[in-house]
Simulated scan of single mutants.
Amino acid sequence: MYNGPIIDAHQHFWEPDINPHPWLAKEVLIPFRYGDYSAIKRRYLPSDYLADAGEHRVVASVYVDAEWDPRDPLGETRYIHGVAQSCGFPNAVVAQAWLHHADIADLLAAQAQWPLVRSVRHKPGGAATPQEAKSGTRSLMSDERWRQGFALLQKHRLHFDLQTPWWHLDEAARLARDFPTTQIILNHTGLPADRSPEGLAAWKAAMKHVAKYDNVAVKISGLGEKGIPWSVERNRRIVREALAIFGSQRAMFASNFPVDSLCVRLEDLWRGFKQIVADLAPQAQRALFYDNARRLYGIDTQPPEEA
Rank of each mutant, 00 (worst) to 15 (best):
E76K: 00
T77N: 04
T77I: 10
R78P: 01
R78S: 09
Y79H: 14
I80N: 02
I80L: 01
H81C: 03
H81F: 01
V83C: 08
A84E: 05
Q85A: 15
S86K: 13
C87D: 15
C87S: 15
G88Q: 04
F89L: 13
F89S: 14
N91Q: 14
N91M: 02
V93R: 07
V94T: 08
A95N: 07
A95C: 06
Q96H: 12
Q96F: 00
Q96P: 04
A97Y: 00
L99Y: 04
H100V: 06
H100G: 06
H101P: 00
D103L: 04
D106S: 11
L108D: 09
A110D: 13
A112D: 09
P115D: 05
P115G: 09
L116H: 02
V117I: 05
V117P: 01
R118G: 12
S119V: 06
V120L: 01
V120G: 03
R121I: 12
R121C: 01
G126D: 01
A127W: 02
A128M: 14
T129W: 08
T129A: 09
Q131P: 07
E132M: 09
K134F: 13
K134A: 15
S135E: 14
S135W: 13
G136N: 02
G136E: 10
T137N: 10
R138N: 07
R138W: 05
S139V: 07
S142P: 04
S142M: 04
D143G: 02
R145D: 13
R145E: 12
W146L: 02
W146D: 07
R147G: 00
G149F: 09
G149H: 07
F150I: 13
L152R: 11
L153H: 05
Q154E: 15
K155V: 11
K155W: 08
K155L: 14
H156E: 14
D161A: 12
Q163T: 10
T164H: 10
P165F: 05
P165G: 11
P165C: 06
W166H: 12
W167K: 02
D170W: 04
D170E: 12
E171M: 02
E171D: 07
A173S: 13
L175Q: 10
A176P: 00
R177M: 13
D178L: 07
D178Q: 08
F179M: 08
F179D: 01
F179R: 09
P180D: 00
P180Y: 01
T181D: 14
T181S: 12
I184A: 03
I184T: 04
I184F: 14
I185N: 11
L186S: 00
H188D: 10
